[in-house]
Computed example of a mutant assay.
Amino acid sequence: MGYTVVSQSEVSPAEERPCELRRLSEAAEMSNVAINRFRAEPGEQIPLAYHYHDQQEEAFYVLSGTMHVETPDGTYQVETGSLFTATPGSPHRAYNPADAEAAIEVLAVGAPAVDGDANEYDPSEDDSAADGESETGGS
């Protein structure tokens, strides 16, 4: 049997991120699911870029504050105690707006845990396609 207890305070923040990221599943040596805890100050975004995943489903549970998520369908405001999900192929960018009063804390879960699954998404490419121009894809 295998059990692990991981204290987020014992997990060092990842370097070169737009906000504080602690990789909890990595610390617990889990390989089938990615579990991350984010803390984003006003003006910080959670992912490295507006993106979508080929295979991974993502769920963001807001522990405190109001997370904003930009999507092609509009911007969602996700309050404390609420869950936002994105299925594979669904572009999204989670952030804490610059005019927010406080930091947000979010627990993110993604499965399967797949390396190289995230693709950058450029919303202007959708605008170009709507204008009759060719769409180039989102890598």
Rank of each mutant, 00 (worst) to 15 (best):
Y50D: 05
F38C: 01
E20T: 13
L24K: 03
A103V: 02
A86E: 10
A103N: 07
D131W: 00
G116I: 09
Y76W: 14
V11R: 05
G138W: 12
V109W: 03
S25E: 05
R39G: 01
R39D: 02
M1W: 11
P18C: 07
S9R: 14
F84Q: 02
H53E: 04
D73A: 15
V11K: 04
P91E: 03
A102P: 00
G116Q: 10
E10R: 13
Y50H: 13
D122A: 10
E133W: 10
A113W: 12
D73L: 12
Y121D: 02
E16P: 00
D127A: 11
M30V: 13
V69M: 05
R17P: 00
Q45C: 12
A59C: 10
G65N: 00
N32L: 10
D131K: 04
V6E: 03
I104C: 06
F84V: 04
R39Q: 10
N36F: 03
E29T: 10
E133D: 13
A27W: 06
L21P: 03
I35F: 05
P91N: 08
G81H: 03
Y61N: 01
E70T: 11
V78N: 07
G89H: 05
V78E: 07
D99F: 09
L24M: 12
Y61F: 15
T85L: 04
R23E: 14
A130S: 09
P42V: 06
P18W: 06
H68T: 08
V6G: 04
G43C: 06
Q56M: 15
L107C: 07
G110H: 03
V11S: 08
E135Y: 15
A108S: 15
E16H: 13
G2Y: 12
M1V: 14
G43R: 03
